[in-house]
Structures are given as structure tokens and as C-alpha cells.
Amino acid sequence: MRIVADGLTFTYNRKTKFAKKALDDVTLTIREGSFFGIIGHTGSGKSTFIQHLNGLIPVESGTLTVGDLDLSKGKKTDKKGLRALRAKIGMVFQYPEYQLFATTVYEDVAFGYHNFFPEKSKEEERAAVFAALRTVGLDDSVADKSPFDLSGGQKRRVAIAGVLVSDPEVLVLDEPVAGLDPAGKNELMALLHRIHDGGKKTVVVVSHDMDDVAENCDALAVFSEGRVVMTGTPEEVFSRRKELEELRLDVPVTRKIADALAEKGLGNAFPLRSDDFVRKVAQLYRGKRV
């Protein structure tokens, strides 16, 4: 599904003393099959933007189309349409493990399936739940456990399975690796890579980790104070290091090494992704030796 936002503007607590403009004229296209990264400082409007994508926050001004559904203001989307939209746009909030509620993992994961497809049979539900659990790398045996007995990383996977269960076409995740240890982080990013599967699903991920973003995303948007200040491939965005640092944003470590080498007069067209980077460095080394 293609997502196109044009001039999207949103203010929290409008017309009160606490009014806060969270989005300001956001224009952005997320093409189908993309692994799209959204970066930006805390409070820059990233979470507000993504909640527009499945109609949790109604469009206040500007236009937004998701697939062939027009969510713009004035276009009334009925309850059924909204539910169909939410089944197709899976949304994983920050710290999704805090939303677990059921007595067993199975029930919790089945919650979304049951809500979206009440007419489906128990067998179909079982198949979908176990498929989702396997996708996130959980054993069938956890299905009968209480979600509250699992480890932090497992809880998060259960929560993500609870979103994947409706087989969404687009998966949106708000800071999915926040609070995970490095190993958990890597596993989760690998999981997202598997879900994306070379473009079979669209993945939109809000992240603070520039390395993760550089490794996985094919397009980026940089938010600042409710505006989109940069868009492009990771290579394009991270080549503007100065501007990013002015926005108090970091660049990936490969970019830093490349810059440091350039300072020593060893500048070269170093790629951003770490394995490409290593290959390039190895190539240069060998070239020197020969």
C-alpha cells in the first residue's frame, strides 16, 4: 500500500491554553514495499504522524491517502472501513508489551484476529495465531503460558505477534527496539527484515538508532518540530551530517569512520551499510598490498 500525506497538520488540545502543534505541513510519500525509516528528536511529531496512518488520529487539515482509502478531512470513513484499514495497517506502539492483558499468550494474540475477522472459524484463528507466533520466533509451547510470565523480549514479540495476526500489508512500529539489550535489538531488526521480505510487506519504523536505520531502510524522513526537514535514501540523508547534528541527530558509525578517514586524507566513496563498508575496506587493503 502506498501512503501519501500532503500538508498534514495537527494540533493537540486545539483552542485551549495547552494547544500544541505536533505536525506542521507534513508532505511525505511512502511507496509500497518500502522499508521506511522515520527519525527525529523526541517530540518532533513522529508518533503523532504514524497514528494518522490507521485513523487513530483523524486528519485535521491536509490530505492523507492510504492505499486507495482517502482519510482526508471531510471524507467520512465508517466504522467498517476504519476496521478494515486497521487490519491492513498493523500498528505496534512503543513498549507494546504494556498492552498485554489476556490470561494466555494464545488469547492475547487471537484478540486482534477475533476483532477483525469475527466470522472466521476457530481453526482459521488457530492457524493465524500460531503462524504469527512462529513469525516472531516463538515456540508453540508459549501459547498456553501467561504473557506476564515471559521475559521482556518475549513479551514484546508476543505483542508484535498480536499485530501480525491479521496479516497486515503495512507494519508500522514506534521505536520497536527501545529498552531492549543489544542482542534483543539485533534479533528484532532481523525479524523486521524477515517480515519485510524484500518488499512483500511495507514496514514503517520510527527509530532513534541511526545504525539500525542505515542498515535496513531504503528511504528515510527526518522530522523536526512537526515538520519533515529531509527525505531521501539513507545515503542521501546521512550525507548531510552537519544539518543532522544541528537537529541533535546522530549519523551511523560507518559514516563517522568514513568522515574520520577523509580527515586523514583517506577519503573514499564508502558505503553506509556495514557489510558493504567492510567489503570496501577489505578491497582497499588488498589493493594496497598488491
Partner: peptide, 14 residues
């Protein structure tokens, strides 16, 4: 926050 998260999973409170 929780209400929004469950709505995203198709919960219907209305």
C-alpha cells in the same frame, strides 16, 4: 495510550 493501542488491534469500545 492503551485504548489507542487496543483500537489499533480492532477493539471496539463504542
Amino acid at each position: 495510550r492503551i485504548i489507542r493501542a487496543q483500537k489499533a488491534r480492532g477493539a471496539d469500545f463504542e
